[in-house]
């Protein structure tokens, strides 16, 4: 799994009402609130802030507002999937177009073209059922192993398409 520790910088804006002895905590908490769970460009999903680098920088007051801006440097744990990576995912939705699966915060779409042809879509149960072995079915909440085929990175979101059309890919028992 593509977890990395990266050093990032974030400008944190603080209201003057926090200018007191607890400012440091406020800063860190604000940073966590603002950063955790977001997508940071090419670095991927920020899972958690591991450490804020000390000493904290001096804040810059914004004239006319009273807000102070602190360029905080911090170490973050990020989740960054790569093309070609094999991941275990949980199926969230099954449609006739394909399967939507999630790996943590990342939604991966597996097109029906990327599903083995011996699996057919069953509208009623919203699942893909293997023709060979009826018991083998991919439905909501199934665990599947897939390979990431392509990733599109936006400033604030990640989308990916994957495949289970290869050896050792597919339903995980």
């Amino acid at each position: 799994m593509g977890f990395f520790q990266v050093e990032l910088t974030k400008n944190v804006r603080v209201h003057p009402r926090h200018f007191h002895s607890k400012l440091k905590e406020t800063l860190i908490q604000t940073l966590m609130d603002e950063v955790e769970g977001t997508v940071s460009g090419r670095f991927g999903f920020v899972v958690s802030v591991l450490e804020v680098l000390q000493p904290l920088p001096k804040g810059i007051l914004r004239e006319g507002f009273g807000f102070a801006i602190y360029p905080l440097k911090y170490k973050a744990l990020v989740f960054r999937p790569f093309k070609g990576e094999v991941l275990d995912a949980v199926v969230t939705n099954v449609t006739r177009h394909g399967i939507f699966a999630q790996v943590g915060p990342l939604t991966i779409f597996v097109s029906r073209h990327q599903i083995p042809s011996d699996m057919t879509h069953d509208e009623e149960t919203a699942s893909y059922i293997s023709v060979v072995e009826k018991a083998e079915r991919i439905q909501r909440d199934s665990a599947i192993r897939l390979r990431v085929n392509g990733i599109k990175i936006d400033a604030s979101s990640f989308t990916a398409v994957g495949t289970i059309l290869d050896d050792y890919l597919g339903l995980v028992e």
């Binding site: 093309k83 394909g98 990327q114 085929n149 392509g150 599109k152 398409v161």
Partner: peptide, 21 residues
């Protein structure tokens, strides 16, 4: 597969997406 592409003519002109098949 997985390439990010854009349609340059036809009815879907301008649309972008990823190759899945």
């Amino acid at each position: 597969e997985g390439t990010h592409v854009k349609a340059i003519n036809g009815r879907h002109t301008g649309e972008t997406g990823m190759v899945v098949g």
